[in-house]
Structures are given as structure tokens and as C-alpha cells.
Simulated assay, not measured.
Amino acid sequence: MDWNRVEGNWKQFKGKVKEQWGKLTDDDLDQVNGRRDQLEGKIQERYGIEKDRVKKDIDDWYNRQTW
């Protein structure tokens, strides 16, 4: 997985992330700034999901994206 694509185009991906995880605020997404570890932490915080599940959910989301 090449997460660099997400980091480099974070402003464009913020909307897609928010569609998937609507509990994340704009401030959350600004803090994440494309960093996967930060995104995982914010999703865990907002949704109360365990770390392994969050990693899988992000992988699934990433693989569904059309490039």
C-alpha cells in the first residue's frame, strides 16, 4: 500500500475520509494532515474501535478508492 499518495493529496482526500468516518471533525482532519497513524488514532478516539480493526477498516477504505 502506498499511503504517500494520500499524504501528498490530503486536501483532496479529506472529503472522502469524512464521507467514510463522519464523526471526524474538520479540526481532526487538519491535525491528521495525511498521516496514517494520526488518522488511526482519531478514528479510535471518535468511534471507540480497537486498533487492529481500525487498521483493517483503513486498508479496506484505501483499496476501494479509485485512482
Results as ranks from 00 to 15, higher is better:
3 W>V: 05
45 E>P: 02
34 G>R: 05
61 W>H: 12
50 E>W: 03
1 M>D: 14
25 T>G: 05
46 R>N: 09
13 F>W: 08
42 K>D: 01
9 N>W: 04
19 E>A: 10
30 D>P: 01
27 D>H: 12
60 D>K: 13
25 T>K: 07
9 N>P: 03
14 K>T: 15
22 G>P: 06
4 N>L: 12
66 T>H: 12
57 D>E: 15
33 N>Y: 08
51 K>A: 03
9 N>S: 12
26 D>M: 05
53 R>Q: 11
62 Y>V: 10
38 Q>K: 15
3 W>R: 08
27 D>V: 14
1 M>R: 09
47 Y>E: 03
6 V>W: 02
28 D>W: 03
30 D>N: 14
2 D>E: 14
63 N>I: 09
2 D>C: 08
6 V>Y: 04
54 V>G: 00
57 D>V: 07
28 D>E: 07
38 Q>F: 12
25 T>F: 13
23 K>T: 02
22 G>Q: 14
17 V>W: 02
25 T>I: 13
30 D>A: 14
12 Q>E: 13
56 K>N: 11
67 W>H: 11
32 V>S: 04
16 K>F: 05
37 D>W: 10
65 Q>T: 10
61 W>S: 12
18 K>C: 01
41 G>R: 14
63 N>L: 13
60 D>W: 06
27 D>M: 12
19 E>T: 08
34 G>C: 00
9 N>G: 10
53 R>P: 04
1 M>K: 10
